[in-house]
Design a protein around this nucleic acid. Structure first.
Lengths: 216, 216
DNA sequence: TGCCATATGACAAGATCATGTCATTGGATT
DNA sequence: AATCCAATGACATGATCTTGTCATATGGCA
């Protein structure tokens, strides 16, 4: 098996040197490119062999790291890109995840974990730093909630959930009743129960709570 | 650095033996426990030293793998658990992610990727098989879409957004007007514009769309 | 200067909603 | 067997919402 070719895009010289050393001393890994800004690395693509993995700092001068990520993705789609970041900001992590990075490491982690991430990324996997993973799982929790895969449902009965679901589609009572094959009175009564259980007293309040807390 | 202690919980004997061999021949890893069912492994926790990493098959006889995952999590919270699965089913992956596993590998992957995942997990990270990672990123895409990370605000004016925001709190028009220091007529007119721009015709529809698409 | 969007305000009619009260049925629990 | 609760249905009243139509003032833009 050939060595894994790695490029490192990182503006902090001290950190970069340390990482290059760690990478080159690892078995099966060779750091064949070192750049202090994304623009330089993007130019280098044109005139040299492309790497298997790119370690990309997102706190770069000039081109924004996430923009750079997308640029690399377009130019060398087969390349696995691992984000290096000092940000533990869910929003930034989220953007990186959505841009399709193969890994997300915090700079506070050990160089050993970087080496492992490179191996994993070269293998096509995706690696996350513990802290990042926790954030991501947190997002999943929210995702789960907004997708209604159980959770605290405030003791709503199945039928009440049906009604709430239709409410959250923006339907009026008459429509809800028709769809669920019940009378408008029954629908009204279910809504009444929903309000009690959700501690709201308007249709908008119920819908807002339902969607925000993943009841529908 | 001590060896990484790994337990393997896997019912298929052939696959288990192969994996034990791969793990033990890897530098810095020792497979100190082999079990064909989760119950046995859970009992073993009581009378032996606990592992750093558990490789857990989710297609086990007896106790369900995801139930086992939660049981391990409760008993040895510091232990990193990597899921082994043949399922490429988004729903199962999703449940595993939400149960807080540290890795999600497909059995179709190489034993090399298992070794990497163990290293990464011992380091506190989370590793995903390529196929799994793609699914996860797919879920994120959906998440992003259903949360409409800004962008399209349907041309709502600032004031209309104010009104919409209050609507999404479950307030009635009278309350919204009071808070925004406008008459109920004005609030009504803003709502009218909101309905036009959002292409809805009920308050619940507007609130649902606003929340789901991240307008508020 | 004239036009347009935004923000404001108003009135009215009819639809819809919120809530109090009541009743029947069937399944589950005790 | 008695009880509880979810689900169903009903009626009435007052509050709230939706929509059509109209009007004024302001600031930006052509």
């Amino acid at each position: 098996m050939n060595d894994i070719e790695v490029w490192l895009v990182e503006d902090n010289e001290v950190y970069r040197r340390g990482l290059v050393k760690a990478l080159d001393s690892a078995i099966g890994i060779h750091c064949s490119g070192k750049f202090d800004r994304a623009e330089t690395a993007l130019e280098a693509i044109l005139r040299s062999s492309t790497p298997d993995v790119i370690l990309l700092d997102v706190g770069l001068p000039g081109m924004d790291g996430l923009t750079a990520l997308e640029a690399f993705r377009r130019r060398i789609p087969d390349c696995n890109i691992v984000i290096l970041t000092v940000f533990n900001d869910p929003d930034k992590i989220f953007k990186a995840v959505c841009s399709g990075a193969n890994g997300y490491l915090l700079k506070t982690g050990s160089s050993c974990s970087v080496v492992n991430a490179v191996r994993q990324a070269a293998d096509g996997g995706a690696t996350m730093d513990t802290a990042v993973a926790q954030r991501v799982l947190g997002l999943f929790d929210r995702f789960e909630k907004t997708n209604g895969a159980q959770g605290d449902d405030y003791g709503l009965s199945p039928r009440e959930k049906d009604v709430l679901e239709q409410m959250a589609k923006g339907l009026v009572i008459k429509e809800i009743a028709y769809i669920l094959h019940i009378s408008t009175h029954t629908a009204t009564n279910h809504i009444r129960s929903i309000y009690n259980k959700l501690h709201v007293n308007t249709n908008t309040g119920a819908v807002a709570k339902a969607i925000r807390e993943g009841l529908v």
